[in-house]
Design a binder for these strands. Structure first.
Length: 458
RNA sequence: GAGGUUGUAGCUCAGUUGGUUAGAGCGUCGGAUUGUGGUUCCGAAGGUCGCGGGUUCGAGACCCGUCUUCCUCCCCA
């Protein structure tokens, strides 16, 4: 017991049945991405620290896994920084590389580096793991997989519309009975900050407002006070708490509230255009909600902001995204706007598991099992086995002549559909016993009839 | 990064105010049944009680440290 093996916190092993379910989920997602014209790319699991640091805010930087320099590079450690108690600088001198924190920033880097090889607007999808040194919790892991779709090089709001359709189509296809696609616009938030005279502290303000449904009006006010917002500013923010009703109602209320803010009006224009398009197209199961409190801490968003929540389950957001105008500029390519969304595969998996949305047949990894009665019978089975495999079925011969009971139990545990038995009796009669493991029914068939049947059944 | 919580068999958990040899169910393996599974019955294997230190005649139980689990913040998928 002393040396019991373990894996790091916030990581998981996946059993065959779990991988089958995950693959089903990824296949569904990829198929939708492909039909909307996105092509897959991949990037390294780790980047230069300089690529990642400073892109996610102070909080984000803290959660980035650093990769310790090895060998001679360890000499680069900045001991002066340590002596001066400048831990961030010391940490940077120890680690030149870091595990990627999301797929968006590496993608921006990718676009800048390969700009001459890409055709714009460039649409890509990317399904890869990311790592965050977060404290694990329900639905929160240190290693998890994101499924991102982004388009860069197009300002058109049709992209936002398309991404909302992708949210709706993927989650509907995966069988989620209900979910809300929450929509907001960073320009609206900027407008609010402007109107309140707090343009410089938009992040603190929006982070507080974002918690409205969680901590209530009083909680938000308390947080704003604690952050040092003036009573006058808070008075101007208060009317927002009363903005309820349909998407159109909220738009109307904000039109007058943001009357003096040019950027705010621009945000409302953008948002209403997206809403109009989506309303005209209709959604399958998704519910599109304009949520003016939706903020998201990621500070690179400049336009639309998305977040998706599944109904009837206790789980944080399962998808997120938004528009970022300046992300590639950080790597030296200006004037390229991008917008994208991310599906949180692991949370979606947890939600689907809780709601029992995975098809049952995913548990089956073997269609036909040949019982092994001995080396003579086994040889005869091998020929048939090959023919069954050629039909595209997953089939195997039990590797040893174990007791029939044991072999059937094995078939049972592996959720096998059919078992074939060819022992002395069948060999003498020139037939085989074909057993349906679900119903227990059994029939005698010739080899030819058996193969025909296999072809029909699957 | 802050606060709380948890850890006993492969899994889920009992274990009295500190007292002799740490239990159950499920699962696994074997048998009942030398060619018929998912039901039943019988039996067996499996634990230095997360790890390290301390208190005590004596620690699974009490104390400290550490790791881990889950939760609330922070933040997020």
């Amino acid at each position: 017991m002393a040396q019991k093996p373990a894996i790091p916190k916030g990581t998981r092993d996946f059993l065959p049945t779990e991988v089958a379910k995950r693959n089903y989920m990824f296949a569904t997602i990829k198929e939708v991405f492909r039909r909307y014209g996105y092509a897959p790319i991949e990037t390294p699991s780790f980047e230069l620290s300089s690529t990642l640091l400073g892109k996610y805010g102070e909080e984000g930087d803290r959660l980035i896994f650093r990769i310790l320099n090895s060998g001679e590079k360890m000499r680069k450690a900045d001991l002066d920084a340590l002596a001066q108690d400048n831990l961030p600088r010391f940490a940077n001198s120890l680690a030149e590389k870091a595990l990627r924190y999301d797929l968006t920033v590496p993608f921006a880097r990718f676009v800048v580096q390969h700009q001459n090889d890409l055709t714009f607007p460039f649409k890509r999808y990317q399904i890869q793991p990311v790592w965050r040194a977060d404290r694990p919790q329900h639905g929160r892991y240190q290693e998890f997989t994101q499924c991102d779709v982004d388009v860069v090089g197009s300002d058109s709001l049709l992209n936002e519309v398309e991404l909302i359709q992708i949210f709706d189509e993927v989650l509907t296809k995966l069988g989620l009975p209900g979910f809300s696609i929450q929509l907001n616009n960073r320009k609206i938030l900027s407008g609010i900050a402007e109107v309140c005279g707090e343009a410089a502290r938009i992040v603190d303000m929006t982070v507080a407002i974002d918690k409205l449904d969680k901590i209530g009006e009083d909680g938000v006010i308390a947080e704003l006070e604690q952050k040092g917002f003036s009573a006058a500013s808070i008075e101007k923010i208060k009317p927002l708490f009363a903005f309820e009703g349909s998407n159109a109602d909220k738009l109307t209320l904000l039109r007058s509230y943001l009357a003096d803010s040019e950027v705010g009006q621009k945000g409302l224009d953008e948002l209403s255009e997206v809403l109009e398009h989506v309303n005209a197209l209709g959604l399958k199961r998704g519910q599109l909600v304009f949520d003016l409190t939706l903020a998201r801490g990621l500070n690179y968003y400049t336009g639309a902001i998305f977040e998706v929540k599944a109904h009837d389950v206790k789980m944080g957001s399962i998808c997120g995204g938004g528009r970022y105008d300046d992300l590639t500029a950080l790597f030296g390519l200006k004037g390229l706007s991008g917008v994208g969304i991310s599906f949180g595969a692991d949370r979606i998996y947890d939600v689907m598991t809780e709601l029992e949305l995975f098809p049952k047949e995913l548990d089956r990894t073997l269609d036909v099992l040949f019982v092994n009665f001995g080396s003579e019978e086994g040889k005869y089975c091998l020929k048939l086995l090959q023919q069954v495999r050629n039909l595209g079925l997953a089939a195997e011969l039990y590797p040893s002549a174990a007791k029939l009971q044991k072999q059937l139990k094995y078939a049972n545990d592996r959720n096998v559909s059919y078992v074939v038995m060819i022992g002395a009796e069948e060999a003498a009669a020139g037939t085989l016993s074909f057993k349906n493991m679900e119903t227990g029914a059994q029939e005698q068939l010739s080899s030819a009839d058996f193969l025909t049947k296999c072809g029909q059944l699957f």
